[in-house]
């Protein structure tokens, strides 16, 4: 009898709307926020290597490389606009955006899921689908927003798909997460060089300039159509070691 009741409770949870059941999960995060943060910091500390004194750290190097890629992209965009010379005054990219900093409470980056829980929510102006940056690169979008906490779905999560622009090819495709800190862009007509930058495309109301998201690590022929290519993308930011992220709140 006890088993039957508990099983029934399990099925009620399973078929209840996720917006309702998520409250339990966010409540857990709220209640155990402090120990979760401490645990994560210990985990990060244990995996941080001591940088050598005469070179800049890999993270700093990547951060600057990402900034460079973003600036080059913005410069190219400005060039295009100048060429058009519409005569209208245009805003600089992200000029009207509020860049909101948020701390990472906990993260799950493995083969099944790629998500972060951050300590900002609706009360701070966050909303679903807003872009999230780290180390000057796009890492994902907001997928669930609670009053004080929110969930970031990284673009490597298997449920994620975002529009991207591939390097200087100027073609737009949908990039799908494939877990294990990787994402895929399928069915491209031409071969793409390893290391090519993948930029998150502009999205009205959410992102007004392309921003780097990852780099191509593999390019192989599509299994079904050998004339087409599939590329594998790795984030340019080390998403497993993030302590804080920035959320783009457009036109606050």
């Amino acid at each position: 009898m006890l088993f039957a009741w508990l099983m029934l409770a399990g099925f009620i949870f399973l078929f209840a709307p996720q917006s309702l059941t998520n409250r339990f999960q966010f409540a857990f995060i709220r209640v155990f926020r402090w120990p979760l943060s401490v645990g994560r910091n210990i985990s990060l500390l244990a995996r941080t290597r001591q940088p050598s004194t005469d070179v800049v750290s890999r993270r700093e190097f990547n951060k600057l490389q990402n900034l460079l890629a973003d600036v080059i992209q913005q410069r190219d965009q400005k060039h295009e606009e100048l060429e058009k010379l519409s005569g209208l005054r245009k805003r600089f990219p992200l000029e009207g955006a509020n860049l909101l900093s948020a701390g990472v409470i906990t993260a799950a980056v493995d083969k099944l899921r790629s998500e972060l829980i951050i300590n900002r929510g609706q009360k701070d102006g966050l909303a679903k689908d807003q872009f999230v940056l780290a180390d000057n690169s796009v890492i994902g979008t907001m997928s669930d927003v609670n009053s004080r906490t929110a969930r970031v779905r990284l673009f490597t999560d298997s449920a994620s798909n975002i529009a991207v622009k591939i390097g200087k090819l100027n073609i737009e495709r949908i990039m799908r997460g494939s877990g294990g800190n990787l994402a895929k862009v399928e069915m491209i007509k031409q071969k793409v060089r390893i290391g090519t930058e993948i930029m998150a495309s502009k999205k009205p109301g959410f992102l007004d300039t392309p921003i780097i998201a990852g780099r191509v690590v593999r390019c192989e022929r599509n299994a079904e159509s050998p004339l087409l290519w599939d590329i594998t993308v790795r984030p340019v930011c080390d998403t497993e070691r993030l302590n804080d992220v920035t959320v783009i709140v457009m036109n606050p």
Binding site: F11, L14, T21, F26, F28, I29, A108, R113
Partner: peptide
């Protein structure tokens, strides 16, 4: 603890 995932599968 699996924030964002459906609740119930692990419980069952």
């Amino acid at each position: 603890i699996m924030v964002g995932s459906a609740m119930g599968p692990q419980m069952i």
